[in-house]
Every structure is written in structure tokens, then in C-alpha cells.
Design a protein around this nucleic acid. Structure first.
Lengths: 343, 343
DNA sequence: CTGAAAGCGCTTACAG
DNA sequence: CTGAAAGCGCTTACAG
């Protein structure tokens, strides 16, 4: 039983006294294999610690049983700092893949220019999951290309009308609306919104529109002096809040378009000696783990990353199987904590 | 130029009027190809958006150009909560792989029982990176198996004498020592240590031993009443600290064997009305992003995850290439913040 | 510098 | 129920 290198199905065939195709059939559970023969083959395979060579079977079947997850964030100076929200998504996506028998290739796309093709074209993956809060308009042409090349992909993000491909996203509008409604209900009247409010960042824009809608409903108008652009980093949130304060803006609440932004804003408020939530209530979006740990704990809009990962993976698999798949918007819910409740 | 499905090297050969092997040579940069021919081939390949089929080339070359990253954490009830420290490692490992031309398969091992073989035996990956703070003794037999099967792998963790395989880890002893020395220098005398101190968790044990060594050097003895077991979760840290407090233990500092433990402990201290650092100084280990954001900011032992990822990937690649690779211990440094400094 | 040939390890019609 | 044959798309000696 000394076989050089890894065992192959042919080795097993010799030992079992059958042909190699029969080994293949037995291992794949074909019903047309004698039960006794099958048992013999399975036993030998186990003894030899045999594993099907994926390269060979993938080549033959023209598919890989692998999905690729591509992050395409704006490159950050500190290159190990990925948005914790995406880490949470990664965990959920990995699990969903494993449960469905798919492997997951992971890639951070700052590094490769022609990401949009590599994985599926080289047969390394059957489809792509795109994750990121980058500038949407910059990535749109790449999405068009993916569609043109008939690449299977799903994207996490706002489901925009007429947008290429399938998007799965949370209900950003509703989340923005509900959080602002909550802040209003707590008696806040001047709510600063920190985060890009343009179609370059559709998710933030939707959150902003929900925010504005809630203001309208309360008979208020969004004050341009209370909005400041920011991408999803603590640093950007800090700068946005500090900028508003420096400009002399008056506000009794801050709604960060993401938790990282809100956390940065909290730091700026703290440095100015403002008490939270007494002087300024604070809210974020995402519900990253940190939100529950800071002082005061951060009120936020919770995205269900577990469900999101499952829906992304399921949608992609159905797409690969040739089914028609629609974009979907997933519900959110408020996680209210000390930063907006006490005081 | 209408080709059904993806283009193959044979399609290019036809269009270029050469044989298929010549296409392969040209694409792989073989020096024995006429420059003019090569250019023609490259042009056609680009037009057709041709990508080498990885399954075919991997099958032929008997290697995959892929590394697999396996997390093997103790399963947590909240299944999306992975230790942030490992997220940071993941980012660094992904980058290191990409820069070296390797793909990365990611897997969380709570789900699969026979993880220790699958990836390399099935030729999906050329080697494995093992990451996790699980019970070491439980995983040791699996490591033995990996060695017996001649699987290429590197492990993040304490480099123990006589241990199977190659381990890359940070200098846990030094980190434990230095932090305790720092706390002593700040006048603390009764330092509670939260975290398992047994060979089931060698990294924590090393940190504990460094801690004890620093106490010795200051003429103090570790007090068993000031040590409480805890795995790397906020919850465990909370319970460990609450347990000590409930038992009436007196301490003026808490050294958590990880940041998550320290953060949980801070919550318990806060609930008891203890001021940090005035009443109790707090320190952790890892320097996760959260450490800098909590109030007071957490003093901790910083592990260089960027370097760690690079060393892990480089070591594994060298192992795959048949080189001899030694286990390594990487330096750490203190990141001192408010939780141990003021007051 | 280039082509014809072999083969990596599977899976799947096709016969029997 | 099982075997002989073909073929997935490459890469690499071997000739020339």
C-alpha cells in the first residue's frame, strides 16, 4: 500500500479490482453501483485518505464549487483597517458558503486593477460577491463589464433602479428615517448628519433621504449647515464633526451615516467637553460590535449581517444555476442605547 | 470572433495561426518564442479577454497557487463574532498573499470535522495557515496528523519546544512581562490576571508567565486569588472580573490576557462604580481597533499583525517550495493609553 | 523558434 | 451493474 504522492482514483481501482470509472461513480454516490462494491471502494478510499482532486473534477465539470468575495473599499492609509461591518459580513458569508458546500476565495481589491474578470474567467470561482462602500459611480462601469461578460455576481449595496446586476442591500431609507424619527421623539430638533449625501455613495444618500423625510414629517427642513461629508472611517467622522463645531454650527444630535463615523464624532464631541447624550445625542448605522462597548453605548441602525450573508450567497448560487434573481432590500431595526436615550 | 463560452488557448492558436503549445509558451513568457509571434498572441488574448484556465494548469502542474486560511476558534454562541485580532490578521494575510500571487481560501472550522486534510489533499490549496485561540491540547493530535500526511502548514501561536510543525507567534512572555512591569512602575501592587493560565492555552500561559516573572523581579508573588480563567471573549472577561469582585478580591489593576477580556472587565468595573484608572488600572493584549476607542483608552500589548501576516505567508510559501523553515517569535511593544496612565 | 504527442485525474455518455 | 473511450484545457519534454 505504498503509493507515491497522493492516492488517485486509479490506485483505488487497482486495489479494489474494479475500473477507475466505477470508483468515481461509487464515490459520487451513483445509484448504479453494487452496494458491496461501493463499500469496498469507500473503505479503501478512507484507508488511503483519498480526496477527489478538485482541479481534475472542476476541469471536467467546468465549474469550481467556489465563490469569490471581493472587497473594493477606498484604499485606506492604514491598510489593515477594514470596516468592521464588512468583517461581520465576511463571517456570515463564509458560514453560508460552507453550509452550502462552496469554498470561498477572498480578495481585497485595492491591489489588482482588473479584478472584474480574473476570478470567474480563470475558472477559479463560479461567481463573485462584491462588497464595499467605495464611490459607486466609479465602480459602475466595471459592473457593466461584468454584466457584458456574463459573469455571475451579486453586490452588497443599494438596489438602484436600472442598475446593472443583482444587488442585495438593507433598507437604508427606512433606517435613516427611523433613527431620525427616534431622535425627534427624544426632543432633538437640530440633527447634524455626517456622511456623503450624493449619488456617489448611494447607501449614505438613501440614509440621508430617509433622515430628511423624517424631518419633513415633523415639519422641519434639513439644514445644509448641519450636513458634512464623510466616508466610512472614524477619522472622517472626527473631522466632519470637528468641522461643524469649528464652523459654529449648533446641534443637539449627531446622526452618523455609519458607526465608524459616529464613533469619530463622539471623540470630537468629547474633546470639546460636550456631554453625550445630555448636550448632544449620537446615533450611527451598522451596529458593529464596538457600538455596544463604547461609553455611552451607541444607538444605531442594526443590519442583520447573518441574513445578509445568506441572501447574498443564496442569490449568487441561484444565479450560477441559471435562475432569475431579483435585487432585494432587507429590513433593518433600531438598536437604541445610551447615546440617544438617557439625558 | 464569435466563440461559444470562454476562449481557450486553442481558439487563440487558430486565430494566430500557430499551434496551441506556442500560445501557452507565449503567455507564460517563455524566452523561446519569436517576439513578433508573441505580440500577436498577446493582442488576440487581450481582445478575447482570455484567462488561463486555472483548473487545467493546476491539474497539469500539480499545484494550485492557493493557500487556505483555517480559523479554528472555540465555537461561540453568537456565530458572527470572531476575535477582531484575527480579522486584522486576515487583512494582513490576504494582502501578503495577493502581493505574492497566491489566492486565499478562507474557512471557519467550527463547521467541518475533518478540516485537517481536505484542502491540500483535494489540491485546492498548496498549504494551510492555521489561526485560532482554541484549546491547544485538543488540536495537537490534528497537528500531528498534518505532519504525518506531509501537509504544508504554518500555525499562528506559541512556538513550543518539540511541537509539531512550524509556528509563528508573538513574544507572549515578553509582552506579559513588560505590561506588568509597566503597571508596577505606575505604582500598582495587586494586579489581577484574567485569562487561562494552563498549557491548554499556551499563548495565555506565556503571557501569564511573563506577568509572574515581572512580579518576581519586583519582589512580589502572584496571588492565586487574583487570577481567573477566561477565554478570549468580552463575556468571559466580564464574568472573570465580576467573579473576582464578588469573591471580595482586592486589586488595583487588571491585566486581561486579551483586549476582549480587558474590555469585558472594564464593563464589570464600571458597573461596580470603580473608576479607571484611578481605582483600577486596566491593560489588555492584542491592540485591536476598539482598544483606542473606548473610554478610557485601553493600554495594551501591540502585536504587529502586518508583519505577522507576511511572516506566516512567506514561511508557508517557503515550506511549499521545499525549504526548511523554523518557528519564529515576533517582537511586541506596549501601547500605553489612559487606562493605565492617568490617575 | 515551433509543432506533435503525452498526460495531469477526473466525469460522463455509450455499450454491453 | 460495469468497463472502454473520450475529453475537460492546459504544460512540458521531445523532435526537428
Amino acid at each position: 500500500m505504498t503509493i507515491k504522492g497522493k492516492a488517485t482514483s486509479l490506485d483505488i481501482a487497482h486495489l479494489a479490482g474494479v475500473s477507475q470509472p466505477t470508483v468515481s461513480r461509487a464515490l459520487r454516490g451513483s445509484p448504479s453501483v453494487n452496494e458491496e462494491t461501493r463499500q469496498k471502494i469507500l473503505t479503501i478510499a478512507r484507508e488511503l485518505n483519498y480526496k477527489v482532486d478538485k482541479n481534475a473534477s472542476n476541469l471536467r465539470c467546468q465549474q469550481s464549487g467556489t465563490l469569490a468575495l471581493l472587497f473594493f473599499e477606498d484604499p485606506t492609509p492604514d491598510d489593515s483597517l477594514i470596516n468592521p461591518f464588512f468583517h461581520s459580513m465576511l463571517g456570515s458569508i463564509t458560514r453560508a458558503c460552507a453550509l452550502r458546500g462552496f469554498d470561498l476565495l477572498v480578495s481585497f481589491q485595492q491591489l489588482s486593477a482588473d479584478w472584474h474578470a480574473d476570478f470567474e474567467d480563470s475558472h477559479k470561482a463560479d461567481g463573485l460577491i462584491l462588497l464595499g462602500y467605495g464611490d459607486y459611480l466609479e465602480s459602475e462601469s466595471k459592473l457593466q463589464q461584468l454584466v457584458a461578460q456574463r459573469t455571475h455576481f451579486v453586490r452588497w449595496g443599494a438596489a438602484l433602479p436600472g442598475e446593472p446586476g443583482v444587488s442585495i442591500g438593507c433598507d437604508n431609507f427606512q433606517g435613516g428615517h427611523d433613527m431620525t424619527a427616534h431622535l425627534l421623539a427624544r426632543g432633538r430638533r437640530r440633527i447634524a448628519f455626517l456622511g456623503h449625501a450624493s449619488d456617489h455613495y448611494p447607501e449614505f444618500f438613501e440614509r440621508y433621504r430617509g433622515h430628511a423625510e423624517a424631518l419633513h414629517a415633523a415639519g422641519l427642513e434639513p439644514d445644509p449647515a448641519l450636513q458634512a461629508d464623510a466616508i466610512t472611517t472614524e477619522q472622517a467622522g472626527y473631522e466632519a464633526a470637528a468641522g461643524l463645531l469649528a464652523a459654529g454650527a449648533h446641534f443637539d444630535a449627531v446622526f452618523g451615516a455609519s458607526d465608524l463615523i459616529a464613533l469619530g464624532a463622539m471623540k470630537a464631541l468629547r474633546e470639546r467637553g460636550l456631554r453625550m447624550p445630555v448636550d448632544v445625542a449620537v446615533a450611527g448605522f451598522d451596529d458593529i460590535a464596538m457600538a455596544g462597548l463604547v461609553q455611552p453605548a451607541l444607538s444605531t441602525v442594526q443590519q442583520d449581517t447573518k441574513q445578509a450573508g445568506e441572501v447574498l450567497v443564496d442569490s449568487l448560487i441561484r444565479l450560477i444555476q441559471g435562475e432569475k434573481v431579483e435585487s432585494r432590500t432587507l429590513p433593518v431595526r433600531l438598536a437604541l442605547r445610551g447615546s440617544s436615550m438617557a439625558g
